[in-house]
Structure formats: C-alpha cells, structure tokens
Amino acid sequence: MMDRKPILRVTAKIFMPFILLFGLYVQIHGDFGPGGGFQAGVIFASSFILYALIYSLHDAKLVLSSVALEIMAAIGVLLFAGTGVVSFFYGENFLNYNALAHDPIHGQHYGILIIELGVGLTVFSAMTLIFYTFAGRGR
C-alpha cells in the first residue's frame, strides 16, 4: 500500500522503539507520575497500529498474530482477578494487596504493579485486535 512512501516508512521505523519505550515508561512509572496500565496499553497499541498502517496488516500480524493477542487479552484479566484471589489465601479481602508481602506497603506496591500489568495487557491486546479486525475486513 505504501510502497512509494519511503519517508513514512523510515520515520515509522525510527519512531517505533521510542513509542514502545514510552509505553513501558508509562506502564511502570504509573504510580509515580501520570499514567498507568490503561494509557500504556493504548500507547503500545498505537505503535502497532502505526506499523500496520505504514507497512501492512500482514506484516504486523507476522510480528504479533491475532491468536496471540486473543490469549494475551484473557491473560490480562486473569492476572488482575488472580491477584485478588491470592489475597483470599492469606485471609484478606478480595483485591486487598496488604497480604502480598510481609510489609503492607510493599504488598500494595507489588499488587498495584501486577494489576496495572494486567490492565495494560488487556487494553493493548483489545485495542490492537479491534484494529486488526477493522482493517482486515473487506466487503
């Protein structure tokens, strides 16, 4: 589709790692600055959408297939809910992260990090997959 647009192709290739890095930063730094799992997932997804727009949907699917994304979306929700269930085993309420470590504050940190990862995974895979299905559909 974009065979004759070398500027776009080169720019996209240069930008990709920076967008991905920024997505990771927003994901992990979410408890200290603005951002979190949802925003990071969207940024990650937008980098893949950029790739699919500039190169082709086929190339993007070679990097990350639809099946892998479907599984990742489910894993994200399970990671979130699973963290909640783990606190049951320590005799705490659902999604109370205090039990995850010896120190309640540390437990909260671990819990927030894990559930943000779950949110990020689900949002990233959902957004990318929705774009895949939209772009892959003809009439």
Binding site: D31, F32, G33, F38, F80, I115, V119
Partner: peptide, 29 residues
C-alpha cells in the same frame, strides 16, 4: 505509599472498579 494518588485510588482503593473496567474492555473486544 504511592505518590500518585490517582493510581492509588484506581488500583487499590477502587481496585474492584478497575477490575470491572478491564472486564468491560475485554467484553467489548
């Protein structure tokens, strides 16, 4: 113990809401 209060509300105090939100995204997918 998280400096960003928004994150502590979203992920910890209101973790149940965020779980529902994630499930909504999944269901929409």
């Amino acid at each position: 113990g998280v400096p960003n209060i928004v994150t502590s509300v979203l992920a910890s105090y209101r973790g149940f809401d965020t779980l529902g939100e994630t499930t909504v995204v999944f269901t929409a997918l």
